[in-house]
């Protein structure tokens, strides 16, 4: 995790860290572009800090009038394994096939 600097400057390291978390690879030039973009976005959002939010409950959703949307516990049809796998880049025996994610012991 990267400490946010006090003056809200976004460093190239921050950009690389965020890109890594998002599984995006950036070239040197792109890193510079996004550093600037992110900094501008943060500066823009920073204006909110001028508002006194002392007694304001954090907004967790913009649809403030809508709440308690449930579905009843009643089964609905699933789709078939063939359908489920139809967009998969790779599959075998009814499974999605992916590069192995654990190391050998």
């Amino acid at each position: 995790m990267i400490e946010r600097t006090s003056d809200k400057k976004i460093t190239r390291d921050t950009v690389r860290y965020v890109a890594d978390l998002a599984r995006i690879s950036l070239g040197e030039e792109e890193t510079d572009i996004f550093r600037e973009h992110l900094e501008q976005i943060l500066k823009y959002v920073e204006q909110l800090e001028e508002v006194d939010t002392e007694n304001v409950i954090p907004t967790t959703h913009v649809l403030s009038s809508m709440k308690n949307i449930f579905r009843e516990d009643i089964p609905a049809p699933s789709i078939s394994p063939e359908e489920a796998l139809s967009n998969a880049p790779d599959k075998a025996d009814g499974f999605f096939k992916v590069p192995r994610v654990i190391k050998e012991r």
Binding site: I74, P77, S78, A84, L85
Partner: peptide, 26 residues
């Protein structure tokens, strides 16, 4: 429960792979 937490797929154990799925849980 009978169904999954956010969709109507059956909450059952031991079915063939990827047979209890829908666009939500996928």
């Amino acid at each position: 429960t009978e169904t999954k937490i956010f969709c109507g797929c059956g909450n059952v154990f031991g079915d063939p792979p990827n047979s209890r799925v829908c666009p939500v849980c996928l």
